[in-house]
Design a protein around this nucleic acid. Structure first.
Lengths: 341, 341
DNA sequence: TTTCAAATTTTACAGGCGTAAAATTTCTAC
DNA sequence: GTAGAAATTTTACGCCTGTAAAATTTGAAA
């Protein structure tokens, strides 16, 4: 069966006795040819190990089968997980996902968008850097490519899918207040809209419950959240400047660092007798169950967000008309009670 | 300056009064045209916001500027970090990196390789799944594309760059033996050559030091290392079947899970007075410094591995001749002493 | 067997750029 | 100012597939 390999569709047409347009039709949509023909083609394709030239294909198609995925930081477990789910859905739907990470840098986000744009993708799913984004560039991109924004609600694209921070923060603040001392809120300089929404949600919930909001903002930025949690946690502990013995972190990665700081200072973390600090997070990152103690947090609905983002994008692509209205979909968080708070 | 956008090189030639072949030459290598011409072109390109069509370009070039990067699991912090460094180097060298993750699945690794191959990349840097790889597929890929293998030494491609496990494991085993009870070795069913090499290195070093090797292998596989460390750690502790109070884990992620297990069983981990278990890892993952207690481990030289892999690949690409001999380069690990052992 | 719609083949052109060869212009050195 | 080299332009063809339109064949129902 190891016949010489065939490199063009024309050659395949010759050796298989099938016309080239029919082959072309088949590769565009295997179901568009008769069953008998389909099988004949499949046999020939395998026999001659033929694969269409991606570049030639996309040169003439108005719409490629490429779906761009752009995330701000690919090693962040939240995004890593999102990417995995999104990729899977795209492949299953016959699309060709291609992933870019901005690695936390505006320059690289712009590069990714420019590169992606020149690939003329059918659509894109992007989680912008947020505050670090070059808004003009992102907007220009979305003017050209059907785009769904997820996680960080930058006001561009045909839609947004994310978490309902108001609800999820409300949930955990309520829990923390009911089970002990009302929490203070630990955050760094906000890097994206989520961070702001979470702080605001914290403040509002505390006020609703009749407590004084206590926001501890440290003047740090970047994507090394754990390191910030550790360093600043050490400082706050040394200065004894934490306004509460219950600390709600703006996200799990910050909490991971803070827990490390507590440990290194000999402070027992947890909700049980003998513990002097309660620490909670937000997101339910994959590693949050492995902290010591395991982290109490609010889970974002990863699956729903990924699923819905992709569905929304496919709808827009298939509609072939830019949605007249930017849709926003928010999923609710669920409380995950572990040992830390 | 917001003139109407120009979409083809021909149009750009018309509006700028520069011939198309010269433009083509410029885009292939800006240095191949005179300075005055270069500036004229750059001005026109910006004015008309022109970007060459990637598909049309690559259709005719024998060699594209694409560099494929394939990793077994993009959310593993080791690979996430490697990808970041490799991407950066490629971009700086004027190449176009494109990343694929196998997400731990053979099927997806094959898909990634096939997709990549049809992009006709100038070269590829791949970290195979290892045992989970479809060797035939990987080998077929490397026959077609100049490839450097990193991390997991599967015997394909033009070269390999990785860590000297013999040395690094020797280092930490020595350290552990000098500072306390000789370690047992905790591993799961090996997923790649590294795992085997590390165990063998452990056994040999122990023998050299006159100690009885104690390998604890748990019959689990997959990429959820922390979970395995936690679950199996809990079991081993409950059964009291750990052969030593010093445990060297085959990698940091396993150690993270094991530390969590110890914590949850009320066991103090560390090298200090009052601790009853010492736990060490291998790799120095980004989050190993945030465990409780911080993890003692051996650092792989991420930077050197990334750097050298890329250099090697560029050498091969530029030589335009397949290396007659497969080169193997190993970098040494360095001991990172923290609190856990 | 006839009939007609559906599938396939034939023919032909388009897409945007690489690239080769010959003709022309521009620059550098004398 | 001029020769000679280097850069640029002109001209023309090729890459591999998409796709449209007309001609032909195929298949299944009547």
């Amino acid at each position: 069966m190891a016949t010489h390999r065939v490199k063009t569709m024309m050659e395949l047409a010759k050796v298989s006795g099938i016309s080239r347009p029919t082959l072309s039709k088949y590769f565009n949509d295997p179901d568009s040819v008769r069953v008998s023909m389909r099988q004949k083609i499949q046999t020939a394709v395998e026999k001659y190990d033929y694969r269409p030239n991606i570049f030639a294909i996309n040169q003439n198609r108005k719409l490629t089968k490429t779906i761009g995925i752009v995330v701000p930081y690919s090693s962040d477990p939240f995004f890593a997980e999102m990417v995995r789910m999104i990729e899977r859905r795209c492949i299953d739907a016959g699309f060709w996902p291609i992933v870019f990470s901005a690695h936390g840098q505006q320059e690289l986000e712009n590069y990714a968008l420019a590169t992606l744009q020149s690939l003329r993708p059918a659509g894109a799913l992007i989680a912008p850097l947020g505050r670090g984004s070059d808004f003009e560039s992102v907007e220009r991109f979305t003017k050209d490519v059907p785009t769904i924004v997820f996680d960080s609600n930058v006001a561009v694209g045909q839609g947004f899918v994310g978490s309902n921070n108001r609800q999820s923060i409300g949930l955990i603040v309520n829990y923390l207040c009911r089970t002990g001392e009302p929490p203070c809120f630990f955050e760094m300089a906000p890097v994206n809209p989520n961070a702001n929404k979470r702080r605001d949600a914290y403040v509002r919930t505390m006020e609703e419950l009749g407590h004084e909001p206590m926001v501890v903002q440290v003047n740090r930025s970047g994507w090394g959240f754990e390191e910030i949690g550790l360093t600043e946690g050490n400082r706050l502990i040394a200065e004894r400047s934490l306004p509460s013995e219950t600390i709600l972190c703006s996200n799990d990665r910050l909490a991971v660092g803070l827990i490390a700081a507590a440990y290194q200072n000999g402070i027992q973390v947890g909700f049980k007798e003998g513990c002097s600090l309660r620490i909670a997070g937000h997101d339910d990152h994959p590693w949050s169950q492995f902290t010591c103690p395991p982290l109490t947090t609010v889970a974002q609905d990863y699956h729903a967000i990924a699923e819905h983002s992709v569905e929304l994008l496919f709808d827009i692509i298939n509609a072939k008309a830019p949605a007249k209205e930017r849709t926003e979909v928010l999923f609710e968080g669920t409380l995950v009670m572990r040992e830390s708070a």
